[in-house]
Amino acid sequence: MASEAVHHWIVDLSGVPAPFNHVNMDTILMAWFTMALILVIALFIRQTLKVYPGKFQVFGESLFDFCRSITDTTAGRRGDQFLFYIGSLFIFIMTANLLGQMPLRFIQILTHYHGELVAPTGDFNTTCALGVLTLVMYFFFGIKAKGIKYFLHYLHPHPLFLPINLIEDITRPFSLMLRLYANILVGEILSGVALGIMPYVLPVGVIFLELFVAIIQAYIFAMLSSVYISLLSADEH
């Protein structure tokens, strides 16, 4: 039901200091499952590389081309230096969102956790980490491109804009984080409500909508990260 989707499987770790001793085990399991799946697929595609590509190589190359088109539309040729970050962000978020739509209820047989394993991006902590990572990345590429002059952009239109520019560093990762989290959470709650109204029929439509939302949200997250990085590492005109 609706409330099941948002109740986490919380595990107490004894011997760990106070704020870190509660762990959302379902999120961790799904995040590790996502990473393992991506790693296995990537290693498998690397095995099949040939001069005349097979179908797995074509799949990998088209995925790479799509990731490259994200950095290419925002930063042009300069985008190749942060392609590694944008590409892994896009592939991780897309795989995580799509895995959340699978009916992974087998875990409640093994444990006392009654609920479904949802996408790791439906948890506030995962998206918070991704948002902070984007913040670190645009600081890193900004300082790498401009050196200490990077910090002059806080005074850019006029020194009076300093507080607004400082607040922007908080709102950028916060909005990225909240957008992804809320979209995935809304999808999980909506499919729970649809299951309550008309089982077997209504959730199908909701899940098709969610498959669309999963890819769009991964695209928006990667695109906005790419825009922020290219904006803050660009030369002054």
């Binding site: 957008r179 809320a182 809304v186 769009i216 906005l224």
Partner: peptide
């Protein structure tokens, strides 16, 4: 279009949160 869609949609999601 999709970038702007994400930016605009966020305001509605604030209400949901």
């Amino acid at each position: 279009y999709f970038i702007t869609l994400g930016v605009v949609e966020l305001l509605g999601l604030f209400g949901f949160v």
